[in-house]
Lab assay of single mutants.
Amino acid sequence: DKPVLAIQVLGTVKWFNVRNGYGFINRNDTKEDVFVHQTAIKRNNPRKFLRSVGDGETVEFDVVEGEKGAEATNVTGPGGVPVKGSRYAPNR
């Protein structure tokens, strides 16, 4: 398990590439950019086929120490709701 650095952090999605399945979230508290992989998205938009977060979307997440620095995990919308997802992700 990766060491946990912070829990229930709010941030804004800087960018997310649906095809490659990753992007970055900017933390509201430290203004640090945190890597996010599609496997870290815990509550996906049920209408979306692929797990994703949308550019500019506000999300809540935990921060863990990854191999290359801070990574987001347990990604949801604020308060644990499903994320909205990327407009580029296909609908079901």
Rank of each mutant, 00 (worst) to 15 (best):
P46D: 07
I7F: 15
D55T: 14
G77Y: 07
R87I: 14
S86F: 05
E57Q: 04
P90V: 09
E60C: 14
V13D: 11
Y88T: 06
P82H: 12
F49K: 15
G69N: 03
P78T: 02
V81W: 09
S86Y: 01
V83F: 03
V63K: 01
V9G: 05
V64K: 06
S86G: 04
A72G: 03
A89Y: 04
T76L: 01
R47T: 13
V83I: 06
T73A: 15
G80F: 02
V83E: 03
P82C: 12
L5M: 11
L50Y: 11
T58P: 10
V81C: 13
A70N: 13
G69R: 03
P46A: 07
W15L: 06
G80S: 03
A72T: 02
N91F: 14
T73C: 14
T58V: 15
V63H: 02
P82Y: 09
K48L: 03
T73V: 15
N74P: 00
V59F: 02
I25N: 09
D29G: 07
G11C: 12
L10W: 06
V64S: 05
T12S: 07
N74V: 00
A89D: 06
V63M: 05
N44S: 09
H37P: 07
A70R: 14
N91E: 14
G80R: 05
G80I: 01
R27S: 08
E65F: 13
P78N: 01
R47H: 14
N91W: 13
V63S: 02
Y22D: 09
G80Q: 06
N17D: 10
V53A: 05
G80Y: 02
I41V: 15
P90N: 10
V53Q: 01
A89V: 10
E65I: 14
E60K: 07
Y88H: 15
L50P: 07
S52E: 08
R87L: 11
W15G: 00
F49V: 13
V81H: 11
G85R: 00
T58K: 10
G85S: 02
R47K: 14
N44T: 10
N17K: 06
G54M: 11
T58G: 05
E71G: 02
F49C: 14
V75A: 02
V63G: 01
V64Q: 07
G69T: 03
T76D: 00
V18A: 14
A72W: 00
D55W: 06
V53T: 02
E71R: 12
K48Q: 09
V59T: 01
V34F: 09
G77C: 05
V75Q: 00
K68L: 10
R87Y: 10
F49R: 15
A72D: 00
V34I: 12
V63Q: 03
G85A: 03
V81P: 02
N28K: 01
N74C: 03
G21R: 06
G66I: 00
Y22F: 09
E71V: 13
A70W: 10
L50N: 09
T73R: 15
N74S: 06
R92Q: 11
E65Q: 15
V4A: 12
D33Y: 13
L50C: 12
A70M: 15
E67K: 15
E71D: 00
E67P: 15
R92N: 13
N44K: 10
A72P: 01
E60F: 05
L50H: 10
V64P: 01
N44W: 12
N45L: 02
V36L: 10
D1Y: 12
L5W: 04
D55N: 13
P82L: 03
D62R: 03
D55L: 10
R87E: 12
G23V: 12
D62E: 04
N20S: 14
D55S: 14
V83G: 03
E60N: 05
D55K: 15
G66P: 01
F61E: 02
L50A: 10
R47G: 13
G79S: 10
A72L: 01
V75M: 01
V63Y: 01
P78S: 02
G56D: 06
K84V: 12
N44C: 10
T73W: 14
E71C: 12
F61V: 02
N45K: 04
G85V: 02
P46L: 08
